[in-house]
Design a protein around this nucleic acid. Structure first.
Length: 192
DNA sequence: CTACCGATTGACT
DNA sequence: GTCAATCGGTAGA
């Protein structure tokens, strides 16, 4: 499998969010390689009050304004969340990775998360970052090579679309995508 | 400097 | 279903 091209991340952000279902997230750490299949994403677009960049550039969201195909990692409460930056430099849009299905390195993920329950390992944006040891040091990382990589997988054909989870603004926008009938998708598993 | 708050999670009724 | 722990980012004085 190969990483996505820069052009992939220049497509419409909702389209990128949809196409990322089925892709593979790979994290290389000192303890070994961790990987999983992306099964749930959310798009954050320009005219979107839930977007961290809605009110302009700050130190925290700067990588959203940078080139496409990089990571935007932010912290919330005591967790981190991983986004993939889309659109040309200067346009702040991104795709939040909400859940993956574990592939490699499950024992390391279990140690990182302090649980052996498979579903609690990587379901939810904060949990998956903890399992994959993703924090602000990976903010701005190039997703085509390095310690955090996104590879083309087998595109998923059974994709559902709903409103996003947890947002207080822009809650009516249908910008959440997930693999139908997948067990590794966070709670609001259906609805339109 | 202080005050407020969330793209979350885990514990609990 | 409800609720609060917890903390960096942000805005405002």
């Amino acid at each position: 499998m190969r990483p996505f091209s820069k052009d992939f991340y220049l497509q419409d952000t909702t389209s990128v969010a949809r196409q990322l279902i089925g892709a593979t997230l790979v994290r290389r750490t000192a303890k070994g390689v961790l990987s999983g299949t992306i099964v749930e994403t959310e798009a954050y677009i320009s005219r979107d009050p839930a977007n961290h960049a809605f009110r302009g550039k700050t130190n925290r969201n700067r990588s959203m304004f940078g080139p496409p195909g990089r990571a935007y990692v932010y912290s919330i409460h005591r967790y981190h969340c991983l986004n993939l930056v889309t659109q040309p430099e200067g346009v702040a849009e991104a795709v939040l990775i909400r859940s993956v299905e574990p592939l490699e390195g499950i024992s390391v993920m279990q140690r990182n998360r302090k649980t052996d329950q498979l579903r609690l390992l990587t379901v939810g944006p904060g949990r998956l970052c903890q399992a994959f040891a993703i924090d602000r040091t990976l903010d701005g990382a190039n997703l085509a090579d390095g310690d955090l990589v996104v590879l083309k997988g087998t595109p998923c054909t059974e994709i559902e679309c709903t409103t996003r989870v947890g947002v207080t603004a822009g809650k009516e926008l249908p910008l959440r995508f997930f693999a139908r009938d997948c067990l590794f998708v966070s709670p609001p598993r259906s609805r339109k």
